[in-house]
Write a protein that binds this DNA or RNA. Structure first.
Lengths: 224, 224
DNA sequence: CGGTTGTATGACAGTTCCGTGACAAAAGCC
DNA sequence: GGCTTTTGTCACGGAACTGTCATACAACCG
């Protein structure tokens, strides 16, 4: 029996989903908060997790990340919001699919089947973001320049990922401090220093950066 | 470079998709009919296929079935019709995802990434694995280096299998504690110690590991 | 051109992180 | 029960990393 865990705070929707899934032949059980969902998934591994994005306390994105941390379970987001940003963010956080409420149970079921099928397939492609001769592989925790692995530290890696995630767009020092370091405020020079160190490692000519460029008065951006 | 084949009869849409995909860093090429698409996929295997459902001649569903017959390539349907029947039918035919036009390229790209990630996840449950001169036979419960059997203890073996199963990907100490020892939490030094012992046995030069490498601040990974 | 503002970078100290040897407890094995 | 092997804990030393600072350099502006 295929087990499905539904993490959704709205009681009505959660129960409706559980019933519909049972009807489709799944064994389904629910959790009203992310915390509870994480706990239940640790205790008894479901074959699929459905998760809402708007949850009280820990939100859906964080929930997905934590689920992913120690489990390869297929995660499907079931959200009311049909918004590209949310979809992309959820998938990047580690979700495998995203469906918009109200969802047809037949479709959901078919998507779950497709996910299970895909899970069995063997594929060898390594996902990596590419910027010219620069490759960033978050999973491998690795950065390559011209095919060669470059050793970067954790902070540098986070910084690079953050810039890569918003490739082509400027990020201010404040934004970076906030997103990479979690600082609400702080010395902006810190960013400079780390950008400099990163350049030493990933730029062929650190003094004339091609990818990690400075926009005076604005911040930094990563470009192809 | 990740290659994407777009099977879509409407020239404008196909070209727009191709351009947008290129922009996202993919290598993209197109086909105006199912027949042509099948032929191109046979000749040069793309990493992803996007397919419209309404095609002249052979329709999208049939196209998906034929693609599936000799290829595990991830297939994403890009259709104008947002209809549960179509969605279910397409997924049943073998598609892996279904997005409705007009589609945000960022979303599409994120979905492709999610598909690639998923494909790799279970990929690893392979009986025997080879890492350079290192062989791990999960069934035989045996490790060989340069053809010679190496005696490893049970914990070391589990640890090695876990790393091998996610070859090339970083596993944090917490993940390893959880997956190898079943601990919800615990002293991370434990992992270090066992990694160290394993290195003594499987690395030619344990002080400079080639396969079982440390990613400072992140964890360990096994690489070729 | 000189002043002003913003950015790059080398040096340094404090801290974090990792590897390892030692050791005791636990588990296997005659 | 004695012996060996394996496992987990601890503590220490060293290496790597981080954040701060000072200084030098570059860009901008009137």
């Amino acid at each position: 029996m295929t087990a499905v865990l539904v993490i959704e705070d709205d009681d009505r929707i959660r129960l409706a989903l559980l019933l519909a899934l049972e009807e489709e032949g799944y064994s389904a059980y629910g959790a009203a908060t992310a915390e509870e969902g994480l706990r239940r998934q640790r205790e008894s591994r479901a074959d699929h997790v459905l998760v809402d994005l708007m949850l009280p306390g820990l939100d859906g994105f964080e929930c997905i990340r934590q689920l992913r941390r120690d489990d390869d379970v297929p995660i499907v987001v079931v959200s009311a919001r049909d918004d590209t940003h949310d979809i992309v963010a959820a998938l990047e956080a580690g979700a495998d699919d995203y469906v918009v409420k109200p969802v047809a149970i037949k479709e959901l079921s078919a998507r779950l089947r497709a996910l299970r099928r895909r899970g069995r397939v063997v594929a060898a492609t390594v996902p990596a973001q590419v910027f010219g001769d620069l490759e960033i592989s978050a999973e491998a925790g690795e950065v390559r320049r011209a095919g060669r692995a470059v050793a970067v530290t954790r902070t540098e890696f986070r910084l690079l990922c953050e810039l890569a995630e918003h490739a082509g767009r400027v990020l201010s020092r404040q934004q970076l401090l906030h997103r990479v370091w979690g600082y609400e405020t702080g010395d902006e020079r810190l960013v400079d220093v780390h950008v400099g160190r990163l350049r030493q490692k990933i730029e062929p000519d650190p003094a004339n950066p091609r990818h990690l460029v400075t926009l005076r008065g604005l911040g930094y951006k990563l470009q192809r």
